[in-house]
Structure formats: C-alpha cells, structure tokens
Design a protein around this nucleic acid. Structure first.
Lengths: 212, 212, 212, 212
DNA sequence: AATGAATGAGATTTCATTCAT
DNA sequence: CATGAATGAAATCTCATTCAT
C-alpha cells in the first residue's frame, strides 16, 4: 500500500509535468487501470512506473507525492462523470440511461476504490465528498423533472432518495462482483429495470398503481 | 496497509494459539476495532500489538500470518451475524429488524472493510463470497415466508432481489458516511422505512396493486 | 545527510533495544566516531550499519528514527562530560585541568558537530541548549571558588564570562583544525596557558593589580 | 544536505555564466541567505532555484556543480571581508572596529556554516584554510602596529594570538546563539569591551601593569 | 540563455516474519 | 508462552545532474 506521504512533502508545488503531456496521461491511465483491476493498494510508484515502462522517480516528477497522483486520477474521473451524466440525462430514456450509467462496472469500481482510499487519505476524502454531493444534487434535479408527473409518489420517495438508492445498489453490485458474489444480482437488476420501465412507460398521467 | 504475506510463509501450520485463549480474543477485538475505526490498512502486526499491550511477534504466535488474523476476524464476525440474523428474523417486526440489522453501522463498516480487503487477499475474498451467499440465501428464505401474502408482488421483485437491494443500500450509506457524505441519506432511510411500514401493515391480504 | 524524520514517525515508542545492549553501544560508538571523523552529515543509517557490520534496518530497531540516534549519542556524551568536568575541577590544578578538558580535541569536535546538527534538528537544539547552560553554570560556580582570591579581577571578567571565553576559544581552535588551519594556534594556546599559570601561581593574595 | 557531487561531474568546465550576470548575483544572494538563515544543509539546487524564481537546471548553468556554487559564495564573501577588514583597521578606533567586525552576526554565521560545510567538502576546506590564514595574517600585522606601545605585553600575548582569541570567541557566541544559548554572553562581551577600552585608552606608554 | 524531461543513486522508514532463547 | 533480536523486501521521496531542444 502506498505509504502515507510524509507531511514535509505536502506543501511543495504540485502538478509538475505539463497538464497535457502524453506521459502524464499514460501514468493516469495506468494508475486507473491498476485501481480498477487490483485495488488502490496496488498503486505504488514502482508498480505504476513498471506498468508504463518508465523509471520510478519519473512518476514523482509528474506527481510529486502519491496523493497528488490519486487526486489527479480522481479529478480526471470526476470530469468525465459530469459529462457522461449530462449525456445520460439528455438521452432518449433518461432513467434507464442513468441506471446504466451508475451501474457501469469499471467506473463504479473506480469510485468504490476511491472511497476505500478516502478512508486513509484525508485529501481524497474531502474532494470525494464535495464531488459526490455535487453529482447527487445534479441527479436529483434531473430526476425531479423527469418524474414530475410520473407514477412515482415523490412524497413516498423523493428524487434525492431515489438517487441514493440507485447509486447505492449499483455500488453494492459492483463490490460484490469483485469478490465473486453474484447471487441475486440478476434478480435485483431485473427488478430495478422493471420498475424503471414502469416509470418510463407512464410519462404522463394518473396511473393510480405502481408506486415505489 | 498490511503488506502481502510473503509466499515463503504461506505453507505454515495455522492456528497455533488455543482457540479460546483470552489473548486470542483480545487480539481479535483490537483488530476488529482498528478495522472499523481506521480501516483495514491500519492493521499491522505492530499496531495491533500496541493496542493490546503485547509484543508484535506474539501476534504471530496466535496468527502465523496476517491473513490468518484477518480470516479469524472475519469468521468470528460471520458467526455473530448468523446468530443475530436469526434473532432479527424471529422478532416481532422481522422486516424492520432486518433493516436495522443490515444498516447497523459498525457491523456494516466491518463488512465493507473486509470487502475492500478481499480485493487484495484472495483467501479473504473466497471466504467472504461463501459467507455472503449463505447469508443471502438465509435472508431470502425468511423474506419469502414473511412476504408470502404481503403487498409486495414477488414477480416484480422477488425476495432475493429485495435482500440485495436492502444490503446494498445499507452498505452505501455506511461508506458514504465514512467519507463525510450524508446528502439524501435521511430521505433514503425515511423512504425505506415507509415502504417497510407499508409492507408490515398489510400482513394478510389481497392487495391487487403491486407496490414496491 | 540524514533526511529529516517525517513527522509521522515522531510519536512512536522510543529507545527500543535494551538500554545496555552491547550492539546498542557499538552503534553509538560508530555514530560518534563518524561524527568526529567525517561530520554529522556522514551519519546515515546505511553508513552506520556498514561501520558496525550490521544490516541497515537493525539500526532502526534500536533507534526508530535518526533523530533518536543523534539524541542518544548526545545524551551519552553529556553524561560523560559531567563526570569528567567534576574530575577536572577536583584535580590538583583545576584551572589547567579545565582548560585541557574544554580543549580536548575529539570531545570538542563532537560538541561542534552536535551544534551544527542542532541548526537543523530542533530536538537536538533544545537538548543542547539545556545541557550547555547546565555545564556553563557548573563551570562558573567552580571558577568562582577557585578564583575567589586569585589575581583575576572578577569585576573586570566574572567567572561566567571566563568560561564562555575559554570554551569559545577552545571550540574555535578545534574547528579551525578540522579544516587545516593552525596559524596562531600555538601562540594562542601558549598565551592562555601563561595566563592560567599566573592565576594558579597566585593562589592567595595580594596582587593589587588586576590582570586578565 | 547537499548530496556530494558525483565524481562523474567533477571534471567539467567551470564557471559558465558570465561573471557579472545579474542572475548570477541573485543566485549567490539567495544561497548566502539560505546558509545564514537555515544552514548550509538547506542549500539544494531546487531550493535555491525556488528562492530566486528560476528553474533548477538553470542554477547548473551558472554553477555546474553545487560545490562550484558554494565556492563562489565563499569567494565573494571573502572579497568583502578583506575590504571591510581594511576599513575597520583604518578607522578611528581600530580595536573596537575589529571586534565589531569579527562579532558581526550574519557574517560570522556564514563563516561558521562554511566551516561546517568544509568538513564534508574538501575543496571548500582548502579554500577556507588559505583565506583564513590570509585574514589572520592581515589582522595580526595591523594589531602589531596598533598595540606596539600599548598596555598589552606582546610577549605574554602576541598579536596573532590575540586575533585567534577574538575570532574564536566571536564565533562561539554566534554558534551558541543559533541554538538558543546565551548564558554568560553578555558578561563575556562586556569583559572583552572593557579590555579593549583599556587598551585603546593607553595609546602611549608606560603602563607596566595591565597585561592580558 | 533557458527549460522540460529524465534518471541513477541513495536516504529514511515500515513491515511481516523468523529464530533462538 | 513469550520476547528480544534480526532481516529481506519494499515503499516513498529527494537530489544532483544530464540532455535535447
């Protein structure tokens, strides 16, 4: 596991390599892949360097501390999330797109790893919190519009609760998958999709039934 | 983070200390507390030893490798889970008790940590998978009985899916909490409790409308 | 140069090896020798280990951080200083013995190195300050008695000033020596010894004239 | 601490930047300030560069190796010393001026740092030795004239010894100051000034007494 | 004259584990 | 049971320096 960055190193200038250097991107790619495939604990200077075919100290040239590297990975991912989220919400079947989005395996795996990481790295934790709340709000707003006159009873389950539930379930499925558990997953997915289908099927009116 | 057990050490005889030694228990308690409070990465031979007031190598007397220690923590927790799960399902308001059980903070935190750990420790991963599936099946069976003729339409959402959803949401809430995110949590909890209330309120009958 | 100890490591348990272990002593000896011969900057885990024929991490077993090592060297030296200082002051010709003591090459070299080190290591600096003042007071008290009715005019140059001057000159000679400068040293030493001779020659009385 | 120059780099052409470039001067200023404020160990390519707002490799353009940088700092300081020394000796109260000169804090701090540095850098050591002896000779000559017929008995304490003592005491005061020791300093200074006063007060003759 | 990129070498420290007692 | 001692392996980070541009 990446040993904690000694405090001494913390207040140095960050982000040394040019923002768009090809190598910088390569390093981020490799780190992300490592996190998804083997967990954040597999991310060490050496390992990343080996993965990209660079020498270890060069990693530090681009990302002075390992935290900087993690933060960079996180920020890049967050950027993409916002774009893809908007795309999903603007699509034909926004609900379904949203679900597909939050249950996208590799993206969610990364999110889960960052969350685990955040337990030990205050900086990550803080950034993650801000971003999570931002995303959540965005989703809730979108849902508010989408479900305004749908079958769902927003007194029973307001949009923001809905996003919490969706995201939560998605994350759990991914986590379990990564340890090889899949019992009930299919049923859960089916169930969710059925509900979504019902919701989307009743874009307009007064269906008395189907409440969630 | 607990460095990976060197392969050299792998084929040792396991479980040296007597199964019920008081110290063994102390070590397990300390380890569990560490995992819940600071994450699994805080668990190192030294740290645990310091916590219990013992010398590091003694930990190895009871748990030859750190993996053994984790496995033992896990197994002990799993035992308790089964007992408490049974108690919950046999209680007055089994649904509500079940929800309280799966969303119990400290227990779930431990579960999440073990899950994160499992990413890097095959042995843990394997044990975890077996146990998770066992618990799930048990829950599903119980739900099957409980909801047989309740309001819920088991075609729409079969019991096993329900346990996946409940457990997933609970875990997500705990994880987010640990990084300081709580936006929407209250709403989500309220929503779930409302649904549970509805289900329990209709112990008998023939509600034609399927609500989830 | 020994890189600064990361803060993280600071509040761990100190002094691990038994106080009187033979190896502990060996390590201290080697460190002290290194400091005297090549300066404090030559003290690195590796170097010390090589010098004693041990493996580098073992140094950390006895002295968790390099600061701990320096502090231990310093404390041991300080102990000896007090003993030898008392012996000197109790001897036949206390003034001369004192001068010989403060101008003892290897001891003073160590002191100078510790002083240089203290510039960068707050802990050392603090300990050093305390000890220096303690020694100084002890010397001044002794001089007070010794010179009570000697030729020296304590209004012109009180005992405490005298110790400052003696120690200062001695240190300067040693420092210069270590860079190969010796011009005027012999004359300075001779001069000091002549003054000391004069002072000791007039143990009693009546020099009306104040000489320094 | 400035890591030792790898031997590989040793036989390069030296002094690349123009002797009087403004940036060269800036670099020297920054280095000197660093040495005085934080000790020579704080002098690293990066640190100096940051201080002047330049990029690290540019330092190497002006001073191929770090040793070259130190030597340049040293030489520039030495130049100034000679000029100020001459001024002091030509002043109204040359003795007092000399004392003020040798006990000037920031200059002496730099000298002490260079001395400490010299322990580890042969080149510095050598240059330092030459310069120290030159300065010493110059001071001794001046004192010889100044004290020719003063109260001081040059048989008891020849001029060259006197410079050694003065410089030594001054350096010691500065060093102790930097670690926070000041016990007895005031008394020592007072004592020295009293002696200087006495000496200057007797520009001419016939005091047979008052020897130092 | 200046700089982004790269790198070899090395420093400190942590950790799991073994071993002899 | 318990523990002091020892150690291989690795992780993070720093630094002086080179090189191509």
């Amino acid at each position: 596991m990446p040993r904690q960055t000694p405090d001494k190193a913390r207040n140095m200038t960050r982000r040394v390599g040019a923002e768009n250097s090809a190598k910088r991107t390569l390093i981020l790619d490799a780190t992300e892949k490592l996190m998804v495939d083997e967990g954040y604990a597999a991310v060490t200077t050496r390992r990343v360097a080996a993965e990209v075919g660079l020498k270890a100290p060069l990693i530090h040239y681009y990302f002075p501390t390992t935290d900087d590297l993690f933060v960079a990975v996180y920020r890049r991912a967050a950027e993409q999330v916002f774009q893809r989220l908007d795309a999903a919400l603007a699509s034909e079947q926004p609900l379904r797109a949203l679900w597909e989005f939050v249950s996208d395996t590799s993206r969610t795996t990364l999110a889960v790893e960052l969350m685990a990481l955040a337990n030990h790295r205050k900086i990550i934790g803080h950034e993650l919190a801000i971003y999570t709340e931002r995303t959540r709000r965005r989703q809730a707003e979108a849902l508010e519009v989408l479900l305004k006159d749908s079958a769902i009873d927003s007194a029973l389950c307001p949009p923001i609760a809905l996003t919490v539930l969706m995201v939560g379930v998605a994350r759990a499925l991914v986590m379990e998958n990564s340890v090889g558990v899949s019992l009930g997953h299919e049923e859960a997915r089916a169930c969710i999709e059925r509900v979504l289908g019902q919701l989307e099927a009743t874009p307009g009116k007064r269906t008395r039934r189907s409440k969630m």
